[in-house]
Design a binder for these strands. Structure first.
Lengths: 340, 340
DNA sequence: CTTCGCTATAAAAACGTTTTTATAGATAAA
DNA sequence: TTTATCTATAAAAACGTTTTTATAGCGAAG
């Protein structure tokens, strides 16, 4: 029978003006306390819930942040979403996840002011023109896993160079001297950075850098399996002390190949990956790997975005270090000759 | 310098009224085609993007569905979100994921009309009064994993009773007689239903039902690991033929515990889980489990909700059957005594 | 006494749309 | 020729808020 209860209904019922109701509800401190509590009581009694569209239209604020991503599949995303939404809660914002591949959808939601600020996962195809449009509208954004050209926006990314560097340093610390790298997909930023870090560490410790020690594994188990097998067949005498694989899947493929040739990991050869995927700890041997601090990325992202919104701060680029997780696939260099 | 471009700016620039602009943009077929294309061209040139709050305030529609959940962690959720958002796309809706534990947030977003319809994951504490409020506002909702009291709302749930029943029947079919159940979280509907199904199957086949054979694993690997270990220590002579774990994580914890005591799975004891999580097939041994058709649940959910919204259909309750996936963690009963 | 300023509230404007109603001009019917 | 109908567009109202501006009442300062 009775339709939606509006602020007008509350005003009439409480015998005051709608501005008074608004002030009471929004805790604006200009009202007589008695009036305020009376209004609140009436609102409660009528089960009044403000219409957010009206509210947001006028105020220009939604107190919502939007996370735009092409996918939400896999542990990376749910860990990220989990930590971001928790942090939003703390700061009084809501987090809204939009799963879409359509850039049009993204831009119309952003410029259409459905949210106060946005987190954008790479690969949505947001370009300079889009960023310019956002800037013009004074919309704040933080990008994940993307190097930003525009100073105006924020970005919180993992430092893959540092990760590659540290991982290699760790292997060197175990006494390994001949370290091979199994590359991922060469068009991907992460892949290239990890390799550069690997090379930098080798140079730093004056270890030989050889093209032969860079294999192509394409971030996949099978490709890596084949690549390692061909390597072993081609250079049986040049077997490295350790393999640093572009990611954990690749590390698994590498270990499978070594096993199939009768080598033991980690006794004969150490193998290390990146990402710390779920399987890493269950695999045999459990993988030594570099873990990204996803929860931390989520928290920093929200903090940064909220500062940009509330304190009108400029966006900047922050890099996160990886964390080396030592498990069973790596071992201090063990020289068979010493044994004999 | 120049602020947000509104429909008014487009109207002025194109030399028409704002209603004409609105009609052109919304493809209302009353305009002279020349006028329409002219207006569209101007809108394009000005990079006009409609303000969604204004739009939604007036029209009363958002073309958005909201998924409200306490958590988004784990494969169940990302598979569900993935399939729901894909189906939303197809039907011209956007899907919005709200991760929150605060019922107040949920209700204010729902009654505040931020979305046209909602999908609610259980455990948010939505009660009859809330549902009544939604009904009064004519808001459509579909509940997941929850038995509904109110006829007016929809629900698409997995038949966990059936799943528990069928899984147990499968184990019985392998020749197992002493079957233990590792319970999940007792406040969760699924957990309780699976256990009831388990009990029903035991009764059906006149097998003994014992309280000792119901362990508490809380749907977690570690809790289950500890629970199973304590069981083994407490009743070494009463070891069951098979464990039916409340979910796959629990099954893994169970197997770890059995392994640590020197038992072999499945030769000594069969273990079975629920959910078919990603690790299930990689685990050693690969898990026998009951798979829910998550993608199907997502599609049915969206379809149902959209029908309720667009065709003003009544909500109803649908149940989905699980599918038993036989892998390496279960085996026909093998009696060591026969061997000796 | 005025006048000023302050307090508590009300009234009105504004946010950016869509929708409803009005209007001018053209075409068709009488 | 007049009137009615239709077409294309414009004007105005409405959606439900917040924010800005106005106002009545009152105590204090001159």
């Amino acid at each position: 029978m009775m339709g939606k209860i509006t602020i007008r209904d509350v005003a009439r019922e409480a015998g005051v003006s709608i501005s008074t109701v608004s002030n009471a509800l929004n805790d604006v401190d200009v009202l007589n306390p008695a009036t305020k509590s009376h209004v609140l009581k009436v609102a409660q009694r009528l089960n009044y819930v403000p219409n957010l569209n009206g509210k947001q239209l006028k105020s220009g604020k939604t107190m919502m942040l939007g996370f735009f991503t092409t996918s939400v599949t896999g542990p990376y995303f749910y860990k990220l979403v989990e930590s971001m939404s928790r942090q939003c809660d703390r700061l009084g914002y809501g987090l809204n996840v939009f799963v879409t591949k359509d850039k049009q959808v993204v831009m119309s939601n952003i410029l259409g002011r459905r949210v106060d600020g946005v987190i954008i996962y790479e690969e949505l195809g947001i370009n300079d023109k889009d960023i310019h449009a956002m800037n013009k509208e004074n919309i704040k954004a933080v990008f994940l896993d993307r190097v930003l050209q525009k100073e105006s926006m924020g970005s919180i990314i993992f430092d893959s160079f540092e990760a590659g560097y540290e991982a290699t340093k760790y292997l060197i610390g175990l006494g390994h001297k001949k370290i091979a790298y199994i590359s991922g997909v060469d068009t991907m930023f992460d892949s290239v950075q990890r390799r550069e870090g690997y090379l930098a560490a080798l140079r730093q410790y004056s270890l030989p850098v050889s093209e032969d020690y860079i294999l192509q594994g394409y971030f996949e188990e099978e490709s890596t399996f084949n690549a390692v097998k061909s390597f072993i067949r081609a250079f049986p005498e040049k077997l490295p002390d350790a393999f640093l694989a572009g990611n954990d899947l690749s590390a698994i493929g590498c270990i499978q190949a070594l096993k199939s040739h009768g080598y033991e990991v980690p006794l004969d050869i150490s193998v290390m990956g990146f990402d710390d995927i779920d399987i890493a700890q269950y695999y045999s041997p459990p993988l030594t790997t570099v873990r990204n601090q996803i929860a931390r990325q989520g928290i920093l992202t929200i903090d940064h975005l909220v500062r940009m919104i509330q304190k009108k701060e400029q966006g900047n680029a922050q890099k996160l270090k990886g964390e080396i997780i030592v498990r069973g696939s790596s071992h201090v260099k063990f020289d068979r000759n010493d044994q004999m």
